[in-house]
Design a protein around this nucleic acid. Structure first.
Length: 183
DNA sequence: TGCACGATGAAC
DNA sequence: TTCATCGTGCAC
């Protein structure tokens, strides 16, 4: 596998989102290396995107989104789940890609369809917020062999409050993959 | 200092 | 459609 370099993340957020499909998310914790193939993502385009957390400006929670690309933005949602994003584009742009579903590859014993379940199965929690994904133990890599994927575009999930931004097709998933979340 | 609510998931 | 469960953001 080839670990993705910072330059991968320092590009247009929609391009990064689509390009993340088929890549491998890797997390080693307590001596266990868990690997999942990314099959569903959503793009959040920055402070002007009313569905993005960064739309409310720089806060303690969202500071990682405003930071340099290639870092993990992990936050708690509904008091019981975590969601993981990868920060994209230049520092200050405050855009990110939410990882919504994985296809299990190695050492995953729980369901991974949906952002909350994905984090639970991969043992991702808030301790990893701000983690540099170009480092060790927690990163994204391109597999040695990857099948070309057909990408489906849909509106994002759970952002109906965001006006016209809610209608944009910024959710991307691998067509026909059984691990894509049901919505 | 208080409180409404959410980029969810599961049960009913 | 309802509920579990709590950190965040903003009102007061």
């Amino acid at each position: 596998m080839r670990k993705l370099p910072r330059a991968f993340y320092d590009r247009d957020t929609i391009v990064v989102a689509r390009d993340l499909l088929g890549k491998y998310l890797v997390h080693e914790s307590r001596g266990v290396e868990r690997i999942g193939r990314i099959v569903e993502v959503e793009a959040y385009l920055g402070p002007h995107d009313l569905a993005a957390h960064s739309a409310r400006g720089l806060t303690e929670r969202t500071q990682v989104m405003f930071g340099p690309p290639g870092h993990a933005y992990v936050y708690m949602i509904y008091g019981m789940y975590f969601c993981m994003n990868v920060v994209t584009e230049r520092e200050g742009h405050a855009s990110a890609v939410l990882l919504r579903a994985l296809e299990p590859v190695a050492n995953i014993g729980e369901r991974t369809q949906g952002p909350g379940l994905l984090c639970r199965a991969m043992r991702i929690d808030k301790r990893l917020n701000g983690y540099d994904l170009t480092g060790k133990n927690f990163y994204i890599a391109a597999p040695n062999k990857s099948e070309p994927v057909v990408i489906v575009k849909r509106p994002r999930v759970g952002v109906d409050y965001a006006g016209h931004w809610a209608r944009r097709h910024l959710r991307f998933y691998v067509k026909g993959n059984p691990f894509v979340s049901k919505r």
